[in-house]
Design a protein around this nucleic acid. Structure first.
Lengths: 223, 223
DNA sequence: GCCGATGTTGGCCGTACGGCCAAACCGGAG
DNA sequence: CTCCGGTTTGGCCGTACGGCCAACATCGGC
C-alpha cells in the first residue's frame, strides 16, 4: 500500500496530471496552455509531449483517473453496510469527501467534459452514466425498503441531489467553518426531513398538494 | 411594450449577444473565436469589433444583461405576494423558468465567470452577490415567519438549493417530459417535506439526530 | 442632392498556441 | 566499457487567434 502511495507520488505521469488538474480547474481547459502545464509539473514542453501526445489525451487520462477514484471510494464506503438507508448516507459522505478533498481532477471531471468531442466525449459520458446508475441502484434499494416517501421520483431526486452536492465544489473552502462531513450531514438532514416547520407543513399542505397537482398554474408575468 | 420587444429583436447588438451566448454555452468562452460569433450573428469580424472592442467586453455585456434579466424576473414574480412562503415558491418558479427558458446567457453567467479576471470579475461577483442576498432576504423572512424548521442553516439551504436548481440547466431538455414549472414544483416538495417516509423518519430519528450532533463521526475508509 | 454620422467591410499584423523532432542524455544490463 | 531503450531537451513550424484599421456604404436631416 505504501508502494501504491509512493508510486502515485513519484510517477512523473501523475505529477503532470495533478498539475494539469489544478490549472484546468483554475483557468479552464481551453485557456490553459501546454507550456503552463509543463512548467507547473517541472518539465519542458517537449517532455510533456512525450508523455501525452495531445492536450486532449491529457484531459481524458485526467478524467478517467478521477472517475475511477470516485467510483472506488464510494463503493468502498458502502461495502461494509447492508442497511439501504445507511448505505445511501455513507455513499453521500464518501462522495462529498472526494469532491472536497482538494482533488482538482474531480472538479474538472464535473465541469470540463464540454471540452471533449466525438468518441472520447461519449466514452466519458458512458463512464459518468455508470457512476450515476450505481447511485440509482442505491436509491432504488432504499425506496424498495420503504425508506422513502411514496411517489418520490428517484431520477429527479438523484438529479437534484447531484446538483446540490456537486455545487459545493464551487463554494467550499478548506478554510471555511464547515468540514465536508458536516456539509454532507447537513444535506442529508435537509433532504431527508425537509426544511418546512410542522406549522407550515400542516398549514399549507393543501396548497402544496395543489401546486403539485396543477404545476405551473401560477403565472404573474405579463399580466 | 411591443416597442421593447421589437427593439430587443432587431437591435444588432442583441443579435450579437444572443449568438455569443449560444456559442459560449456550447463550446465555452475560451474555445469560441470572435470569427465564429460574427458568422453566427451574420456580420463580419470587423463589424463585431466595432460593437464590442474585445471578446471579454462581449462576455461582460452578456452577463450583465443576464443578471439584470434574472433579477427583474424574480422581483416581478414575487412582487404581488405578501406571504413569505409563497414568495419563496414564486421566486423559485421564476428562477427556474428563466434558467430553462433557453436563454443561454443565464447558463453562461453561471458557468463561465471563471473566464473573467481582475476588475470585471469582481464586478460580476458583486452583482451575483446582490442576487444571492435577495434570496437570503426571502429565506430570512420565511424563517422569521416560522415557516422553516428551527435550526435550519439558511446560508447552507440557499447554497444547496442553488446547486440543485442551477444544475437543472445541465440536464434539462425542452423535449423532455417535464416542464420547468413541474421541475420547480418537484424541487419545492422535496425541499419542503423531505424524501424520507414516516417509517424511516421515526425509525431513524435518533440516528439522524446523532449524525447531526456528531457530524463526521463515521469513517470507514482506512480502517 | 449634399453631408456628416453611424455602421460595415475585408483584409492585415503580431503573437502565441499546439504539436513535433533530431539530438543529447542517462542508467542499468551484458 | 559498451551498448541500448527509455526519457529529456530546447527549439522550430504552421496555424489561427484577437485585435485593428483605412476605405467604403448607408441613410436621415437640412
Amino acid at each position: 500500500m505504501s508502494k501504491v502511495r509512493t508510486a502515485r507520488r513519484d510517477d512523473p505521469n501523475d505529477r503532470v496530471l495533478d498539475a494539469a488538474a489544478a490549472l484546468f480547474r483554475a483557468r479552464g481547459f481551453a485557456a490553459t496552455t501546454v507550456r503552463e502545464i509543463a512548467a507547473a509539473a517541472g518539465i519542458l514542453p517537449g517532455s510533456l509531449h512525450y508523455r501525452f501526445a495531445t492536450k486532449e489525451s491529457l484531459l481524458i487520462a485526467l478524467m478517467e483517473r478521477a472517475v475511477d477514484h470516485a467510483t472506488a471510494a464510494v463503493r468502498d464506503a458502502v461495502a461494509g453496510c447492508r442497511d439501504p438507508l445507511e448505505r445511501l448516507r455513507l455513499g453521500l459522505c464518501a462522495h462529498m469527501r472526494i469532491l472536497l478533498s482538494g482533488d482538482d481532477a474531480i472538479y474538472v471531471l464535473l465541469y470540463e467534459w464540454r471540452s471533449l468531442t466525438g468518441g472520447p466525449r461519449e466514452d466519458m459520458v458512458r463512464l459518468r452514466d455508470r457512476y450515476e446508475a450505481f447511485w440509482d441502484g442505491l436509491l432504488h434499494r432504499a425506496a424498495g425498503a420503504g425508506c422513502l416517501r411514496d411517489g418520490v421520483d428517484l431520477s429527479l431526486l438523484r438529479l437534484f441531489s447531484f446538483g446540490a452536492i456537486n455545487w459545493a465544489a464551487q463554494w467550499y473552502s478548506p478554510e471555511g467553518r464547515r468540514t465536508p462531513d458536516q456539509i454532507a450531514d447537513a444535506f442529508w438532514t435537509f433532504a431527508g426531513l425537509g426544511v418546512l416547520s410542522d406549522n407550515a407543513r400542516s398549514g399549507n399542505i393543501t396548497e402544496i398538494a395543489g401546486s403539485l397537482a396543477a404545476p405551473g398554474a401560477l403565472r404573474n408575468e405579463e399580466p
